[in-house]
Design a protein around this nucleic acid. Structure first.
Lengths: 268, 268
DNA sequence: GGCGAAATTCCTGTATTTCTGGAAAATAGA
DNA sequence: TCTATTTTCCAGAAATACAGGAATTTCGCC
């Protein structure tokens, strides 16, 4: 029976709906760095015939995922904004996180950002932020921006609880970056780092993503104890120092908010 | 030659990439009202075979437009959030609008929302809002929510400047709703209403979308004088009354901000 | 307002893909 | 652990996407 499907190894099996995948790959061209594409550029980039690319664009534009601009340049369209609204309103984490972030930011008196992240496919994505009226600094985390798992408190809080199977795969694929991030030179050292991260209820990191900023985050768990994301705050080093002895309290508060979210996630 | 393609009338010609369109139609099922679908439900709704629907879901999930949840229920995925970030960062209107909205909201001392809308396919979509820290009311407009063209100041400011060809088509398609909105019982009355709307630099509406709220908006134009969207504020009736004689100034400010945005749009 | 260039649509046979339909496998739930 | 549900797999039949270029429309510039 092993012979039956031998000709296409499972790890490079092509999805059945190749047309759909190719159309979506057009959409995938639109990134932060290259937010506009002409049909010809896209055709060249994906090795498509121009007339075929036009059909793909037409489908995407018709649905609203793209909009045709001037000079034949297209960009991401309004359907995305509408779909994003759906995620904002129906994401259980976001619903719970908003109030929690508000409470976490309060003691910093406008000099902190609340951060809510979700674990997704060996990455972390910020799904919501609480930004006070006038914020005196900018941060790397931003709703919709994918971040690596091993830099920043919000990421590490998730990484620490991902479970052996996933962290092993992560090590195999991105070992060098893990080592570069100071999380261990080999697999067993990495495991030790993770154990240490897990020992803290809330993680505090200094300047890992933005110079002069401090992140404080704790993991949020869903059903069966799986880590779903993290919640926390980012503030300036100066404001953190100003906390002095109260820093411990803030950590505890972050951990408590995260745990409270975990509990409420189980109830729903 | 008329016989050659007779079997598919031009007005209902199906797009060529039927597969892609069907896959996208699956994505289209996910709405504010029904944000979760199982493969079976989607197959039933779109008259697809289950095994086919699975392939569609797989493509969408692989790309991240959907995520598979528990119990076979899927919902909108992280790719949407990433794409939304691209629109936020690369939309010229949003870039200009943020500061303008901030200035417009200031005199209301926290009791107003800034609103930035875009015209799109005979609809209006809010693409950005400026919400002060503690807002004592909720509004219908919200980033990503499509709104009709003929209710609310933000919409009417756009409608007034759409041009005869589009307004005519709008009348043909949605005449009853236009009449219901009090914009005229027939085409020529509608035209008259539009002319009157155009005569004001900024539009003020009372309670058209939310009871007890007042909208003040003005149109923003792009190249060739085409209306691109509108910018304005929404406040409470009470706060508006409190303005008293200064209401005129606010209107003028809204109009001025909108014009300033139009001018800067032309420069870029 | 009109010209040239570019962008976009149209066209058809053929080859490639997708879809069907059911059965098997994997997974989740009890 | 067992059952129900979800998901993948398969191969032939049938639909459809693609090539390739020509026609057409639109756009940008005088």
């Amino acid at each position: 029976m092993a012979y039956a499907t031998r000709d296409t190894p499972a790890h490079e099996r092509i999805s059945k709906v190749a047309t759909a995948d190719k159309v979506l790959s057009v959409l995938g061209l639109f990134t932060m760095e290259t937010p506009e594409w002409t049909v010809d550029e896209a055709a060249a980039a994906l090795d498509l015939k121009t007339s075929t690319a036009y059909q793909y664009f037409r489908s995407l534009i018709e649905f609203g995922l793209l909009v045709g601009g001037s000079g034949g340049r297209s960009s991401v369209g309004p359907a995305v904004i509408s779909l994003d609204r759906i995620t904002r309103r129906h994401d259980g984490l976001i619903a719970l996180g908003r109030a929690a972030m508000g409470r976490l930011v309060t003691p910093f008196d406008g000099e902190a950002v609340g951060l809510l992240c979700r674990s997704f496919r060996m990455q972390v994505m910020c799904i919501d932020e609480f930004v006070p009226a006038s914020l005196p600094f900018a941060i790397s985390y931003e709703r919709g921006r994918p971040m690596p798992l091993f830099r920043g408190a919000a990421s590490k809080a998730i990484l620490a609880h991902l479970g052996a199977r996933i962290t092993r795969r992560l090590w195999d694929r991105q070992g060098e970056q893990i080592t570069a991030a100071g999380l261990g030179a080999d697999w067993s050292a990495f495991k030790r780092s993770l154990r240490q991260l897990r020992s803290r209820a809330a993680l505090v990191t200094h300047g890992e993503l933005d110079e002069g900023l401090v992140g404080i985050s704790a993991p949020v768990f869903g059903s069966e104890g799986l880590v779903m994301g993290s919640v926390g705050v980012v503030t300036t080093e100066a404001a953190y120092v100003r906390l002095g002895a109260r820093a411990g309290e803030v950590e505890a508060t972050v951990a408590a908010e995260a745990q409270s979210m975990s509990e409420r996630l189980l109830q729903t």
